Amino acid sequence: MATVTLHGDNVQTSGTLPKVGSKAPDFKLTTTDLSSKTLNDFAGNKVVLNIFPSVDTGTCAQSVRQFNQEASELDNTKVLCVSRDLPFALKRFCGAEGLDHVISLSDYKDGSFGKAYGLNFVNGPLETLHSRCVVVLDENGTVKYTEQVPEIADEPNYKAALEALMDD
């Protein structure tokens, strides 16, 4: 278990993020058109997993906007925005904001992504949602960088995540 805070109050997660150098756990997530995507669908690409509780909060929305902006300049990289929001909410948000450089994926069906990555909240007001995390993978699905944001209301370290993409 990991402990993060929500406005200073401790909240626990279901485990810990995958270790740098390990193979990323596979996943099956739902797209905004209700089809499914797995990690294998992104093989051969660098992947940024921008993970958050809900796109309907200011900090989460900002992380999607920021990664959308950054993704437009990245070669051979897919930015996956993952939450337990319904696919319809993700589609509405990205459509209204004109965000087309990120891929929105939902873990709403069974939360298996959050369980596999050890980031589901197990207590507190956001119980069962995902904690705010960034996981960067290389073209082979190996974890290059992880960040579990210590205070849920704070944004991730975009610069560190993007720098991890450049490391060989």
Rank of each mutant, 00 (worst) to 15 (best):
K23F: 04
G15S: 09
A24W: 01
D26T: 07
G8H: 11
D26L: 02
L17Y: 00
K19L: 08
N10P: 11
N10G: 05
L17V: 07
K28V: 15
Q12L: 12
V4N: 11
S35H: 09
H7Q: 15
A2P: 11
P25S: 02
T13A: 03
T31Y: 07
T3H: 01
F27K: 14
H7G: 04
G8C: 14
L6I: 12
L34H: 13
S36P: 00
S14D: 13
K19P: 13
H7C: 08
K28G: 06
T5F: 09
V20M: 00
K28E: 13
T13H: 04
T32P: 07
L29Y: 04
K19V: 15
S22H: 15
L29M: 07
S22V: 09
T30Q: 10
D33C: 07
T31S: 13
T30R: 05
D33F: 08
V11W: 06
A24D: 11
P18I: 05
L29Q: 01
S35A: 07
L34R: 09
V4E: 04
S35F: 00
T31D: 10
G15K: 09
V11F: 10
S36N: 08
F27V: 14
A24Q: 07
V11R: 15
D26M: 03
L34E: 06
S36L: 08
S14C: 12
S14T: 10
V20I: 14
G15E: 05
P25W: 01
L17P: 08
S14P: 12
D33E: 14
S22A: 15
K19W: 02
S22I: 01
G8K: 08
K19E: 15
T30S: 10
L6T: 03
K23V: 09
D26G: 10
D26Q: 10
T5W: 04
T32M: 05
P18S: 04
Q12C: 11
L34T: 12
S36R: 04
S35T: 15
A24I: 09
V11N: 14
K23Q: 12
N10W: 01
S35D: 08
D33I: 06
Q12H: 13
L17G: 13
T32C: 04
L6Y: 15
D33Y: 02
L17S: 10
L6F: 14
S22N: 12
A2L: 02
T3N: 03
V20G: 03
L34K: 12
S22K: 10
G21H: 04
D33R: 05
G21E: 01
Q12I: 01
V20F: 02
S35C: 00
V20H: 03
S14N: 14
A24P: 11
L34D: 11
P18Y: 05
T5A: 11
P25A: 04
S35G: 07
V20A: 07
T31M: 08
S35I: 00
L6R: 10
T13S: 09
P18N: 10
L17K: 06
T32Q: 03
T13D: 09
T31V: 00
L6H: 09
D9P: 00
K19I: 09
G21F: 00
T3D: 05
T30Y: 11
T16C: 06
D33L: 05
L34I: 05
D9K: 15
L6P: 00
T32W: 02
G15W: 08
L34A: 06
P25L: 02
T5L: 09
D9F: 11
D9R: 12
V20N: 03
K19F: 04
T30I: 13
T13E: 08
T32R: 00
P25C: 06
K28A: 12
V4F: 15
